[in-house]
Design a protein around this nucleic acid. Structure first.
Length: 548
RNA sequence: GGCCUGUUGGUGAAGGGGUUUAACACGCCACCCUCUCAAGGUGGUAUUCACGGGUUCGAAACCCGUACAGGCUACCA
């Protein structure tokens, strides 16, 4: 038969059949409701928040059903593939504890799972076997359209306001006699393989998306390319079909930009008679750009890249929490009732997912992160700060290592109480908020005492140090001594009285404490002064006042 | 141009015909507390759910149009 000749000409030496692969990759032996999900990025060297969110959902879905979450490298576009990209993705997943159950890493030669290879370029023969089957059945054909011809078709369609694409009469080679095709291939003509679509654009089919519910699409009637001419690798659509079929994916989580490909995927699954996985088309993460709103972009928006959160030093917990609140808005309420539960215990419900795009609220992230850090122990804050510094600020890291106990004492200010302070939003902020505690950074400083003369302040501070300051005072005594000093110098101790008649006083207790505060830190805003002085210790306190 | 999806405050959103004077969280504002901050406390922050029409005793919710926004429309995923 001619078709056979054609198929063998294009794919000589394929030894297996679809049935062979089906036995090679049998149904997974999992519980009834187990979900098999995958994270399937293309290796471009980035991790985009628009990929992270579906990945998180994949992970939750698999974990809470005792299913499988696997990583698949979608490198069919060889021109866009970047060396080491998968390894980078592995590191991001590891950083967020979203480790896949099945994967394949080239650098370490590690592979796990019996449904591999998990790298698409290594699955070429598998795809070709499926394509060959289609060729044999006359459901696919080689297409010799050149780039120029296709451009011309597209232009013509655009001009005539017709649908763009290779379909109907534009599919010039779909009915080319097999003999001619064989001849041209033998001649060495470049070709792509297209699906011979059976669809009718005017007919609709129903499709159930787990987020959007039942939807209606027109059937696909475009003869989409399923194999590229350049390297014989499949297009995304075809690889999706083959891989998710053989790997027994039960749920495909992907961005809504894929929704318009549903007719294509529907037809592909139909052609083979395979059951489609369930689809969860999740809303896009958007960005407000001036007056308009658009899809968040790794090029324009730093927060689109996952490295942004790492560089700033957001705890992984905070990032996950913030994204989970977008994933399901009842997540926050759940979290309130389950403060210590792992996020995978939350029951994700695609139906409760919004079907419109969402702006990612960095203020919200900050709030979550701040609350989270405030609930950590001083040791945990220290470890977090140290880990971040080792990566991004060697100098601060060595200071932290040198002053471990001292640093933890700083982080412990007003921490061990029901409502702890919320000073730190992310780890990179800690240095900026504590630098003055370290003599190494407390150099060449300038002081600003506002309306008071420096000489006068200096005298007051000297009096304070010599006559009033005692390191072993408790906070109450400490403050009453400051008040004594106030009274002596005619600074008001009663703020209400002061506010009524400020002209009766030289100043108030606020001014005096601020003299001390600025003298010790140069700043007018710091955490509790008493604690600061306790941590600095007598030696530093006196020395800093002397050095004024 | 075509196809698909959506549209409830500054943000994420709840609510799917009458107990909604539109929940909750973030943000913002004000006041209180207070040695400065942070935290905390109290209150405020959509007279109204894109718009127009319809169904109904009654609509943010149901229907139809319109507008707007986004996505896709590659041998990219």
């Amino acid at each position: 038969m001619n078709r056979e000749e054609l198929a063998n000409l294009i794919f000589p030496g394929l030894t297996k059949t679809i049935a062979d692969y089906e036995t090679l990759y049998p149904e997974r032996d999992l519980g009834e409701n187990a979900r098999v999900t995958r994270f399937a990025p293309s290796p471009t060297g980035f991790m985009h928040i628009g990929h992270f969110m579906p990945c998180l959902i994949d992970y939750v879905l698999a974990r809470q059903s005792n299913g499988v979450f696997y990583l698949r490298n979608e490198d069919t576009d060889t021109s866009r593939s970047v060396e080491g990209a998968v390894e980078y993705i592995r590191s991001v997943l590891a950083a967020y504890d979203l480790n896949p159950d099945e994967y394949e890493y080239r650098d370490t030669n590690e592979t796990k799972g019996s449904y591999g290879p998990y790298i698409q370029s290594e699955r070429k023969e598998i795809y070709q076997t499926f394509i060959k089957h289609l060729l044999l059945e006359g459901k696919a054909y080689p297409c010799f359209l050149t780039k120029e011809e296709m451009d011309a078709i597209r232009e013509g369609q655009a001009r005539d306001k017709r649908r763009i694409g290779i379909y109907g009469r534009y599919a010039k080679y779909r009915d080319l006699p097999v003999e001619e095709a064989i001849e041209r291939i033998k001649k060495g003509d470049a070709f792509t393989i297209r699906l011979k679509s059976n669809g009718d654009f005017n007919r609709k089919f129903k499709f159930n998306d787990l987020v959007n519910g039942e939807m209606e699409f027109p059937e696909n009637d475009i003869d989409i390319p399923i194999m590229k001419s350049k390297d014989g690798l499949p297009t995304y659509h075809f690889a999706h079909l083959v891989d998710d079929y053989l790997m027994h994916t039960t749920h495909v989580v992907r961005g809504q930009e894929w929704m318009s490909s549903v007719p294509v995927h529907y037809e592909l699954f139909q052609v083979f008679g395979f059951k489609m996985p369930k689809y969860i088309h999740i809303p896009l993460i958007l960005k407000k750009d001036g007056e308009s709103i658009r899809k968040i972009s790794k090029r324009l928006d730093p927060e689109a890249k996952m490295t942004y959160y790492e560089e700033k030093g957001y705890p992984k917990f905070a990032v996950i929490e913030a994204i989970m609140t977008i994933v399901n808005s009842n997540y926050e309420a759940w979290r309130e009732g389950h403060p210590d539960a792992h996020f995978t215990e939350f029951e994700f419900s695609p139906k409760k997912m919004s079907s419109s795009g969402a702006l990612f609220d960095l203020d919200k992230l900050d709030n979550i992160s701040k609350n989270y850090i405030s609930r950590l122990t001083k040791e945990e804050v220290y470890e977090g700060a140290l880990a971040w510094s080792k990566k991004y600020d060697d100098e601060f890291a060595s200071i932290l290592e040198k002053y471990k106990e001292y640093s933890m004492a700083i982080y412990n200010i007003e921490r061990e109480q029901k409502k702890p302070r919320k000073d730190y939003t992310y780890y990179s902020e800690i240095k900026n908020k504590t630098w003055y505690m370290y003599d190494e950074y407390f150099k060449d400083v300038t002081y600003d005492f506002g309306i008071f003369k420096k000489e006068e302040v200096k005298e007051i501070l000297n009096t304070y140090i010599t006559e009033y300051y005692n390191e072993s005072d408790d906070q109450e005594t400490w403050f009453s001594k400051i008040k004594e000093l106030c009274t002596k110098l005619n600074f008001a101790t009663d703020m209400k009285a002061y506010k009524v008649n400020p002209e009766n006083y030289k100043g108030s207790v606020v001014d005096i404490t601020n003299f001390i505060r600025v003298g010790l830190t140069t700043l007018t805003t710091t955490p509790n002064l008493y604690d600061i002085m306790q941590i600095l210790g007598k030696e530093r306190v006196t020395k800093r006042i002397e050095n004024l």
